[in-house]
């Protein structure tokens, strides 16, 4: 009888051991899955952020070559030159033709902040087309020189592009 009892106790201990191992394994597995999911979320967020940054950079490069912005002399476009008068005049046109400019500038906001000399300081909201239900946005800022052809001089400015995602 006592041998039988001993065997029973041994079996129970063994079963207890196996259950503990299985529980530990399950806990480790669940922790591993949680860790992996968190990591994937973070990686996805980073990827989205990087994509928004790339979009913002691409848009800022496209703006530099827009005829609505580029300086010109005798109908010849000048590279790396932003015409302040054109920018002011084009702003309402872009607003009225958002659908057309969406094809070039997408869901983004473009501002040109004139900084120096102080008498010229102001911010021009050149284009604004926010994506409905935006979940992320990234901004790129680049110093530029804006040319005022009526005064034949340059103003120090910053081009700010926000890409929506």
């Amino acid at each position: 009888m006592s041998t039988h009892l001993l065997i029973m106790k041994k079996a129970q201990v063994k079963m207890g051991e196996n259950i503990a191992v299985l529980l530990l394994f399950t806990v480790l597995l669940v922790l591993g899955i949680i860790f992996y999911v968190q990591y994937q979320r973070g990686a996805l967020r980073d990827e989205l952020r990087e994509q928004r940054l790339k979009d913002a950079i691409q848009i800022s490069q496209r703006i530099a070559y827009l005829p609505e912005v580029q300086c010109s002399e005798d109908a010849i476009q000048k590279e790396n030159c932003y015409d302040g008068v054109k920018i002011e005049k084009a702003t309402p046109i872009l607003k009225a033709n958002k659908n057309y400019y969406y094809g070039i500038l997408g869901y983004s906001k473009v501002e040109i902040e004139l900084l120096y000399p102080p008498s010229d300081a102001k911010t021009i909201l050149f284009y604004d087309n926010k994506k409905p239900g935006t979940v992320s946005e990234e901004m790129v800022q680049a110093p530029i020189a804006v040319y005022l052809p009526n005064e034949d001089r340059y103003v120090f400015a910053v081009l700010k592009v926000v890409a929506y995602g």
């Binding site: 120096y116 000399p117 110093p143 530029i144 020189a145 103003v155």
Partner: peptide, 18 residues
């Protein structure tokens, strides 16, 4: 490097009416 380049080129071209 691009920021440094843009700052210098825009700054040098700026006309100072002050």
């Amino acid at each position: 490097a691009q920021i440094a380049n843009n700052v210098i080129s825009a700054m040098l071209a700026t006309s100072d009416t002050v």
